[in-house]
Design a protein around this nucleic acid. Structure first.
Lengths: 157, 157
DNA sequence: CTTCATTAGTTAATCTTTCAACTTCTTAGG
DNA sequence: CCTAAGAAGTTGAAAGATTAACTAATGAAG
C-alpha cells in the first residue's frame, strides 16, 4: 500500500469513495439551496429557522446558535442582522446576563418555517433519503458516526 | 409514515442519518481547509492544482476546469486570477479557438502540488478514510453512486 | 471591594462569491 | 459570404464570509 517517499496514497477504491463523498456533498448542498430559492431563503437561513423552531420559546442565545450551526460569532451576527431585516427573527436582550442576546423567531419567521419545511423535506427526500434503502441509510449513519465524533473532538478550534 | 397535511416527514433514523451527513461534510471540509492553511492554500486552490496536475501538459481549458470543479465561469475566472498572482498558474491562449484560454500549472504550482499532496492525503486519511473499514468504505461508495448520478443529471443548471 | 482574565457580542476592513452585463470569437443557415 | 445565435471568458458591483480589533459585562482571586 505504501509507496516511494513513505506516503500512503489512496487506493483506487479509497480514491473513488472519497471523491464520491466530495461530489455528493457539494452538489447536494447546491441542489437544496436551489430548491429553497423560490421561498427567498438560503440554506443558512433555513438552518437557523430549524434551530430556533426546535428551541424552547423559539429562542436561542447567539453563542449557542453559533455553536449549533458551526458558524463563527461574527458570521452569525451578520447573518442574524440580515434575517432581522427580512423580518424572520429579532434580537432580544438577556435579563440574566446583560452581555447576552437571544435570537427569537418572529411570527413571520415561524409562519415561514411552517410553510417551507414540507418543501424542504421533500427536497431532502428526492435528492438523498429516498435514493437509499433503509439498510443503506442505517449503514451510512453508522459509518459516519465515528467520523462525526472524531471531527467534533478534533476541532479544538 | 405519512402525517397531517400529507408531508412525508423524516423518521428518526432518516433524520439522524441526514444530519450526520450534513455535519460530517461541513466539518470535514473545514478540517481539510485548516490542514492546508500552513501551506498557504485553500481547498479551492488545491482542487484546481489536482485537476491541472492530472491533465495532459498540466493544462485545462477554463470551461472544462469550471465544469470539473463545479464552479461558475465567473468564480473560476476570479479564482485563477488569484492563483496567477500567487504564481501557481498562468493563462495561455488557445490556438485552435481564439476565444479560449488554458489555465496552466507553473513550475512553482507543480512543485507546490508535489510538496503538499502527501500532507493532504494524510489529512484525508486521518479525518475520513482511516476511520472507516474497507467494507464500510465500499458500502458508502456504492450507496452514494446513485445519488451522485441523480444529482449529475438533475442539475440542468 | 478591586483587579484582571474571560466571555458575549459587534464592527470595520478585507477577501471571496455571486449576479448581470459585456466583448470577442465561432458556427450553423440561408 | 453574411448574419444571427451561441459559446468562451472577463469584469464591476453587490452580497456574503473571514479576520482582527474592539466594547461591555461577568466572575474568580486576592
Amino acid at each position: 500500500m505504501d509507496t516511494e517517499n513513505g506516503t500512503r496514497w489512496l487506493s483506487d477504491e479509497e480514491q473513488a469513495a472519497w471523491r464520491a463523498h466530495l461530489y455528493v456533498s457539494r452538489l447536494l448542498m447546491h441542489q437544496l439551496e436551489r430548491d429553497l430559492q423560490p421561498f427567498g431563503l438560503t440554506n443558512n437561513d433555513y438552518e437557523i429557522l430549524v434551530n430556533l423552531s426546535e428551541s424552547k420559546d423559539h429562542r436561542m442565545r447567539m453563542s449557542d446558535l453559533a455553536t449549533a450551526t458551526l458558524q463563527s460569532k461574527s458570521r452569525l451576527s451578520h447573518q442574524i442582522t440580515r434575517m432581522e431585516n427580512a423580518g424572520l427573527v429579532r434580537r432580544v436582550n438577556c435579563e440574566s446576563d446583560r452581555r447576552g442576546l437571544f435570537a427569537v423567531l418572529t411570527d413571520h419567521g415561524w409562519k415561514t418555517m411552517r410553510e417551507v419545511a414540507p418543501h424542504h423535506v421533500a427536497s431532502v427526500r428526492e435528492h438523498f433519503i429516498d435514493l437509499l434503502s433503509p439498510e443503506e441509510l442505517k449503514a451510512l449513519h453508522e459509518s459516519l458516526a465515528p467520523v462525526a465524533k472524531h471531527l467534533r473532538t478534533t476541532r479544538a478550534k
